[in-house]
């Protein structure tokens, strides 16, 4: 029972991790930037979902329809005004720029919303059903997982069938070659960052229903997302999806059979092991870059 309970919880939690990590991986692939503000972008999604629900009474799942375009525009604008100025700069400058942006977002939220944690409570927040064998499945987690699957499928179709999607993938594979082929790589970067922000904010909005919201609530997911991206192969969107679920299950199993306090160590050791044994990750194409 403990095994299956941990497995189910791990998969459902992993779905959220996956959604957060996919945005990061896309940004990494197209722009070659490690985005340390990703957790703060998730936080923005959490607050949007919270205020749309409490002020306008819009169900968090429905509010995604409003959050996604807003987040896209926000990400696009950040890229156009700031991030694009450090593309091609040393990676530590890029990292510090995103760290700085994260500090600005988190502390602005602190001034605007105070540090009091907010809890988004819908009528079904604490509802669950039991599978045979007394295994409990949280309904909001399951719904979030299904939405994640849907978003992943849409993203996959977008990347593989539309012109913009293919241009994004081309830029991701080889920026210079893509430029020579007439692709507007600077626009692709902005679109990638917009989509990355959209996915981060969606992940935030989804997790807000079973988590809590405070100005730094996204930070929990930052290092996890990096781990997942590396596990799946930096730049691989599908890899991030699978990686998220793997990490979710590993965490749950470590908590169940090892100890709750050591589960993060297990994740980081796994992360290093992958870097050493298979640096391009499960689905990566480039090796060390």
């Amino acid at each position: 029972m403990l095994f299956f309970q941990s497995l189910i919880s791990g998969i459902l939690t992993g779905g959220i991790y996956a959604l957060a990590a996919m945005g990061m991986s896309l940004v990494f692939g197209v722009m070659n930037i490690s985005n340390f503000a990703h957790g703060d972008l998730m936080m923005l999604g959490m607050y949007m979902a919270y205020y749309l629900f409490t002020l306008l009474n819009i169900d968090p799942f429905l509010s995604l329809v409003l959050i996604m375009p807003a987040a896209f525009v926000f990400g696009y604008a950040i890229e156009k005004t700031m991030i694009n100025r450090v593309i091609g700069h040393p990676s530590e400058n890029q990292i510090l720029l995103t760290v700085g942006l994260g500090l600005i977002m988190g502390n602005t939220a602190l001034l605007a919303f105070t540090s009091d944690p907010k809890i988004l409570t819908t009528s079904y927040s604490s509802s669950s059903f039991n599978l045979p064998g007394d295994i409990s499945v949280s309904i909001p987690m399951l719904l979030s997982f299904l939405v994640t699957c849907l978003l992943t499928a849409v993203l996959y179709l977008f990347l593989s069938t539309t012109r913009t999607g293919m241009a994004l993938r081309a830029t991701s594979q080889n920026r210079e070659a893509a430029q020579l082929m007439g692709i507007d790589v600077s626009r692709m970067s902005a679109i990638a960052f917009g989509i990355g922000t959209l996915l981060a904010a969606s992940a935030g909005a989804l997790i807000a229903q079973t988590y809590y919201i405070d100005p730094f609530a996204g930070h929990t997911f930052l290092l996890k997302s990096f781990t997942i991206c590396v596990l799946g192969g930096l730049g691989s969107v599908i890899g991030a999806g699978v990686g998220g679920i793997v990490i979710g299950v590993v965490e749950a199993m470590s908590a169940a059979y090892l100890s709750s306090e050591w589960k993060d160590v297990v994740v980081f050791v796994l992360f290093l092991a992958i870097l050493l044994l298979r640096p391009r990750g499960l689905f990566g194409r480039k090796g060390e870059q």
């Binding site: 990676s91 590396v230 060390e288 870059q289």
Partner: peptide, 10 residues
């Protein structure tokens, strides 16, 4: 053994 972003993350 790693370079660039991989090095930073590791």
């Amino acid at each position: 053994r790693l370079r660039g972003h991989y090095f930073a993350l590791a």
